[in-house]
Every structure is written in structure tokens, then in C-alpha cells.
Amino acid sequence: MKIPLFAENLRKTYRDFWGRPRTEAVRGISLAVRPGEVVGLLGPNGSGKSTTIKMVLGLLRPDGGKVELFGLPPSEPAARRHVGYLPELPDQHRFLTPRETLAYHAGLMGLPSSGADARAEALLDRVGLARAAFDKPLSECSKGMARRAGLAAALLGDPQLVVLDEPTSGLDPVGRHEVKELICELSRDGKAVLLSSHLLSEVQDVCTRVAIMVAGLVRAEGNLSGLLERRDAVRFTVSGLPPEKEADCRAALGVASGGLDVAVDHPAATLEEYFLEVLRAAREEGGAEGGAAAVADGGGAR
């Protein structure tokens, strides 16, 4: 099976009305999401996360680089057949009910109408939407309920690549937990998931890999455990150590053995600590602010 998402050296510069470059939102990033992976895309506001996601989905045309969804460019309808997308803002039609929303998306995907009801109900149940809300217009639903309906629409058609932009936005703690469970389930089922979120704790809970973007570039990327491992510190873990020996162990630099299990590992920082460290380093390096790099010039259209 082809790689669900492959992006190489993507670039995007926003221009003003006169075509002059204004903001270099993405300055050459490469990204790949394989089946079974949950890749977290992190970054401060204006770092180019949303722009990257939109380029990947064909909503924006990159100024440079290459994007392939299952080996095809995103502009091809066939490429989008196996993609599910949940955008950041509540973007459902407020005059539709959740059931009608799913019917609409099913139609757009060309899914047959037979079994549509059962399919819709199963999905809405899966995302934890109350049955009473299935046929309520979204204008009468809370933000969280609308979000769940959007998530169900993103899972329609059993997509192989799921792109989630702030999936837990507006959800209560129980809802956030359910969504995290859902994401893990998708990963176990072999789906590829690209997740963008500001909630670092939830990214830490579900992602296998993360890419941290700052000012349009990927500053750090890799397996989560590897990134968070603090190689400048060593932790000795001794099980069953009697309290009177604790002081000796503390004083010694070597490992106390004698038939006791000793585990040596590197302590892990939290993702938040690591994230802030990367950000600090990026600022010290190039003086770049958290957001995208503004193109230096003398004026601009408003």
C-alpha cells in the first residue's frame, strides 16, 4: 500500500492583492505519515501548521515541493477518497442535523444511500454523541456536540488517512478522553493519523511521532519517546533497596549490585518542557518570533 501522506520540501508564501510576497508561512518542510502512525504537528500560533495541513489536503496550492496522498496529488478526487478531515473551527452547516450532515458527506464521497442510516448511527455512537441529538439542528447543539458530529463525518467511509485539527476543542474532559481513545483505536486499526493540537498533554498521550514547527520550518521531529529522552541525565532505579542502604547508594557514583534488579534509563521530560526548549532554541538561533516569517518590505495591503 502506498504511503498515505508524503510531503517533500513544501513551501507556501502568502501574497497581497498585488501579488507581492507578504508572509512566508511554510519554508520547506517534509512530512510523512505511515499506516498505524499518529503524527502530531505542533507549533505556536502562526508557525504554519494550518497552512501545512491545508496544502496536504489540496485546499492551498504549494509554491514549491511535492505532496502525495496515497501516491496521487491531492487535487485528484481519487486521492481524497480515503481521507477524512476534521477542521479546526466548527464548520458544520448549522441548519443540518448530525444525521443529515453525515448523509451530506456520504453523498459527497459517493457512498451508496443503502444502509446510510445504520452507518450514520454507528458513527455517531462511536464518537459519543447522545442519541437525542441525532436529529437536532446543529444550531441547537452545543459546541462539543457539533464537534462530535464533525468527527463522525471525518470518519465516514473508513478513511485510511485521518487529519484532525484540534479534535478535542470544545469537548469536556470525558469527551477528550473518548476522542483520545478513538485516535488510539484508529492507530491500532492501521490508519494513519495526522493530528494538530495545542494541548500538549493530549498529544503526548496519543502520538507516536511529533513534528514541531516554528516559523515555517520543522525544528524537531521524531518518535516521541526518543525526543523526550533526556540524554544529559542518567537515572538509576533500584527496586527493593532497604532504607539504610539508600544513603550509600546516593553517595556512590556506581551501580550497587548484589543480586538486586537495577534499571538504568534516562529520565523523560514532559512534552511541554521539551516544546518550550525547542522554541527557546529557535528564537536564540534566528531571532524568529513564534509565528511565520514576515517578508521584509516597506508597506502592505490591508
Binding site: W18, G299, G300, A301
Partner: peptide
């Protein structure tokens, strides 16, 4: 003026 000074067109 919009190009040169960014005034509202």
C-alpha cells in the same frame, strides 16, 4: 498609495 504606503484603498 496602497502599494507604496499601505493606505486603505
Amino acid at each position: 498609495r496602497n502599494i507604496r504606503r499601505g493606505t486603505r484603498i
